[in-house]
Design a protein around this nucleic acid. Sequence first.
DNA 1: GTGAAAGCGCTAACAG
DNA 2: CTGTTAGCGCTTTCAC
Lengths: 341, 341
Amino acid sequence: MVKTLDDIARLAGVSRATVSRAMNNAPDVSEVTRQKILHLIQEQDFRPNTVARALATQRTRVISLVIPKSTASNFTDPFFPVISTVILTARQNEYAFMMWMNDGSEAEEQFCERILNNSLSDGILLYSSLGNDPLFDRLVKTDFPFVVIGAPPYGSKNVSFVNFNDIAGAREAIAYLIRLEHQRIGIITGPLNTLPARDRLMGYQSMMREAGYSLDEHLIVEGDYTLTAGYRSMNILLEEKVDAVFATSDIMALGAIRAIQEHGLSVPEDISVIGYDDLFVASLASPALTTISQPTRQMAAQATQLLVDQLEGKWNGPRQVTLPVTLTIRDTCRILKNPIL
Amino acid sequence: MVKTLDDIARLAGVSRATVSRAMNNAPDVSEVTRQKILHLIQEQDFRPNTVARALATQRTRVISLVIPKSTASNFTDPFFPVISTVILTARQNEYAFMMWMNDGSEAEEQFCERILNNSLSDGILLYSSLGNDPLFDRLVKTDFPFVVIGAPPYGSKNVSFVNFNDIAGAREAIAYLIRLEHQRIGIITGPLNTLPARDRLMGYQSMMREAGYSLDEHLIVEGDYTLTAGYRSMNILLEEKVDAVFATSDIMALGAIRAIQEHGLSVPEDISVIGYDDLFVASLASPALTTISQPTRQMAAQATQLLVDQLEGKWNGPRQVTLPVTLTIRDTCRILKNPIL
DNA sequence: GTGAAAGCGCTAACAG
DNA sequence: CTGTTAGCGCTTTCAC
């Protein structure tokens, strides 16, 4: 049975170098021999050994997606679209795909070591590690090709990343609530030691201020993106007599709605609620959730392409991309009887 | 800078064979030299090249998860728990993880070719391809190590797989509805050219028959696991005056509930609804969905372990595992005032 | 216990 | 255009 490139060479009556050239579309092979070889390869169902090729070329044509602990445990994250888009984009560039994930059962340092020890991928896509990630530092230090999906650690400069404009997203949400003539607008934030959470809060504050609202500290409640956090935070905000709430994740928005309803109030008649993320559940919920949609697939695709370009030498240093987000209006914000616009 | 095993050998004043032995815990190295070598490796931050090792050993210590087109487009599937569990189990056995997915942008044959061409993984986990999958046939034919996650194509015998007991699951759902003294129980099935869908229907029928119900064809409506299918099918069943519905996916159950509510009826007071899958959304919905829960993580873990065992030679031929499912009672089925039990 | 030597299957100069 | 040769970085016999 035909196993190696040498076998094909023997059958074709040429050297193995020629077979290699024919396979790899090198320019310097006569069309006749190339055809003969390609035909043989087909006929014998020969598949060149990827590992051997990788050893010789010093490239594996594999990219890795790394999902650190902090991110993996966050259910809000739209992993599936990210994963599938990275796989798709990688494939279009003829790269295979590996994935590393820390579900929390491993110390982050050890996780980092394992990935570094494995030289099976040419580059890494690091899914936004919110805390300070040891892997990030190591990658920077060792000059290993990588791109961050989401926001990189605060202050890092010479790093490629693709993230969302959280400030603008929050501003858009608040602007909408203001257009609906809401007076007391509360916010349920994410963990405020993370950048996206801080950015969304900042967007809220800046838009409120711009619109001439006074900033009431009591209207800001910190959550952690979970259903119960949304529920509890809403109970606090209900005491404050808010007439609208900006929950900075869809899941928290759902928790908030539950709390509102349990108080005998209804959404959107009594209180408007706006979420963030536009997860699949947002459209499924009833009432369907008004929320901020993020171009997740675009983020994943662009990050992957940045990495591939870097691996292929087509780049001029790190690139930073910040994608705009959009407001998706559904049924959880009130409808003005006499809209101004 | 230290790059290869030879560098370490030189620094240690031994041959590279000895370094290799020390690294791999071979028995025949004196404790003194082993310690010296290990210390040097640590100190120099040397990481043996995975590709070179793979070429020499003819094993990569990588397993692949393959998600074919038909499955990837099915939103009902709980990919994330499967993926994370496979990764976890692989890691525990010191295997890295690759993933291949066909989002539909590629012909299934070509997808299959790409995977086969890539000799970077030692074994494959094939995520239940409902249709007839070319990859499945090729893997069987080439004797490549693989395990099916879910149900393998009908009639395949010498294949390892881990699936769920769909018949028992459906029976349990129906038995529950019968205990609640429902009289006209409808079912919204999945695509009946797939095994799980047929099994769930079969479970429905067998339990109905056993309980002495007459089997009314009009109570059976075929869906495709989508929200709209659930909605439309329910509208048909409403004509039939059902008082309970078994939707064979959570998403269809949500669609059904929407249809019921739009008819001015309520769940569970007027009609009981029971779903299947116990997706994350099931617990989020209001009313929270009563449904059949499947041990997804267990399935993924066991399939992975089966594959690893096969790769390590610890097996005695193919193994078939069918896992039991359980009824999760929430709020979409009526509560009897005078329960029998 | 350790070293020498021969691969693993492919690519990539360098000749010719 | 094609063959020869020398690796890529590791493992693994087989001697000693």
